[in-house]
Amino acid sequence: MKNALVINNLYAQTIDGKEILRGVSLTIKIKEKHVLMGPNGGGKSTLAQVLMGHPGYVITKGTIFLDGVDITRISVDKKAKLGLFLGFQYPVEVPGVNFASFLRMAFQEKKSVSLKIFKQNMQKNAKQLGLREDMTERSLNEGFSGGEKKKAEILQMSILKPRYVVLDEPDSGLDVDALQYIAHQVESLNYSFGLLLITHYQRILKYLKPDFVHVLVKGKIVQTGNASLASLIEEKGYNFLFQK
């Protein structure tokens, strides 16, 4: 299926054998905004990491197709080049690697750009996100506060313009202002992409309206609905769903 990220009956476990995902199926089309919620330990972050190919997990069953291409077992960088992007929940610090250089290198895998133009563009986006200009001169994520790290993830996304964006709890650890910035950035990107946003607190949903809401519990999606499902959960909690 073109113009869609199709996850079909995905099973995954940690490399020392603990099963986390137990048959997840989800289709995200371009221009759609999906939100994934669920209690802690249900596998939300795991799904995000498994999609990207995190070395700590192994897919045991099922497939992932991006724009009709089977990406289940291809290398991490190839997935990225095909248009998949993961905004990490805890972006790792990479000392000694300059932020701007690294991002330009990633950008240049698809298209050439002069350093000057690239930096201009990047600094403009950084400003819009409320990031200090000098941030991009520093080592990748080194010394960034939690909020700055999250914003930096969005900055990367805005430069690389991926077709399918998975954001792993971009709202955790952020104050309201930062939340708004991020939501605004995501909403105002000037190209079409499919979004899977993983959230725990749902606060970001005040600023970002989802088309679909899914609930992941113990490695399986137990409920799918629209934005009102999120409000219901906020009001009554997850247990309410199980009482049906």
Binding site: H54, A80, L160
Partner: peptide
């Protein structure tokens, strides 16, 4: 994890390693 992060931005393995 650092390698994974760089590759997740589309930078191939060898280049990521050298970075």
């Amino acid at each position: 994890l650092e390698l994974f992060y760089l590759m997740s931005r589309g930078i191939p393995y060898e280049k990521s390693k050298m970075l």
